[in-house]
Structure formats: structure tokens, C-alpha cells
Design a protein around this nucleic acid. Structure first.
Length: 148
DNA sequence: GCCAACGTTGGC
DNA sequence: GCCAACGTTGGC
């Protein structure tokens, strides 16, 4: 799950000391991932994008079922969507909980050269979705990279 | 339903 | 700042 650290970083999530809403995703494929592909209790990588060193910085846990992203109904929010009906919300999200920050960032450049990650979705050209699936094998491979 | 125009993402 | 990729919009 990607976030621009200038906007919301893994340190922001850690400082929350509890669940936080993963808000603002406005893409139908991502909406479907939140709704259908995730389960309460799943773990996810936190990825910093659009920054000096893009890459995976730690682990968090999904700690809710899917529910409508509240920011779509908030006219004061930058994520407000006037076309989303309250009785049939367009945008879904889930709560996440900080699990741990890696000893070092695992940069995108390293992911690209790590054996076993050749087919990882986040490395595919043209891939811009802010939430992407990770296979169990990729998950284990990546966990071994940052060390302690 | 087609498709051009436009907007966004995000690495570089 | 550039640009490739691709999603969305809206006229027809």
C-alpha cells in the first residue's frame, strides 16, 4: 500500500498508536481490492512513493472490514466526491495498524534486482495503483531483505 | 459503444 | 520538469 511520505508516512501511522483510516483512494480497482481482496487481519507493506527514495519501509496490519471512506462525504476534504451517493458509496477503505518499521528502507531499485520478485505487481511497467497484491513468496522474500 | 482529450501517477 | 502509462470523462 503506497503513500507519499510528505502526506502520510509510516512514522505518522506509528505515532497514531492505534488503528488509522487508509483514506483517499479514488480508483475502482483499488476500491475492489479493499472490498474483495483484503481480509481483516491481513498484513501489508507500507510503501513510500513520490519521494527521494521510494521503497518499502515497514509492515502494517489490516484491522477492519471494508467500509465507506468517510472523506468522500466531507466537503472540506481534498478527497471529497460530490458524485458519491450516501446510500451507495463509491469509495471503500479499511483501518490499518502499525506493526513495525524496517531497520532500513528497501528501495524500489533493490526490489527490481532481487531474485524472486521478477513478477511482483509493483515492479510492472505502467503500474500505478496505490494498493497492489503481494504473493506469499514475495512477502517472505522481502521480509528477509532489510535485516535487523 | 467508440474514442479523443484530459488528468493523474510516479519514477527518473 | 519530463514523460510513459493508463484511468476517466463526455461528445457523438
Amino acid at each position: 500500500m503506497k503513500s507519499e511520505p510528505d502526506c502520510y508516512s509510516i512514522d505518522d501511522l506509528a505515532a497514531k498508536n492505534g488503528p488509522d483510516v487508509w483514506e483517499g483512494c479514488r480508483n475502482y480497482t483499488v476500491r475492489n481490492f479493499f472490498r474483495d481482496a483484503m481480509s481483516n487481519g491481513d498484513e501489508a507493506f507500507f510503501y513510500h512513493s513520490s519521494c527521494d527514495e521510494p521503497g518499502i519501509v515497514g509492515v502494517m496490519r489490516v484491522v477492519s472490514e471494508a467500509y465507506p471512506d468517510p472523506t468522500q462525504f466531507d466537503p472540506a476534504s481534498e478527497y471529497y466526491d460530490a458524485k458519491s451517493p450516501r446510500d451507495n458509496p463509491r469509495w471503500m477503505t479499511r483501518d490499518v495498524l502499525f506493526v513495525r518499521k524496517f531497520a532500513r528502507i528497501v528501495p524500489l531499485s533493490e526490489l527490481r534486482t532481487t531474485p524472486g520478485l521478477e513478477d511482483m505487481k509493483v515492479l510492472m511497467r505502467g503500474q500505478r495503483l496505490s494498493v497492489l497484491p503481494v504473493t506469499p513468496e514475495e512477502w517472505q522474500t522481502i521480509l528477509r531483505l532489510p535485516g535487523l
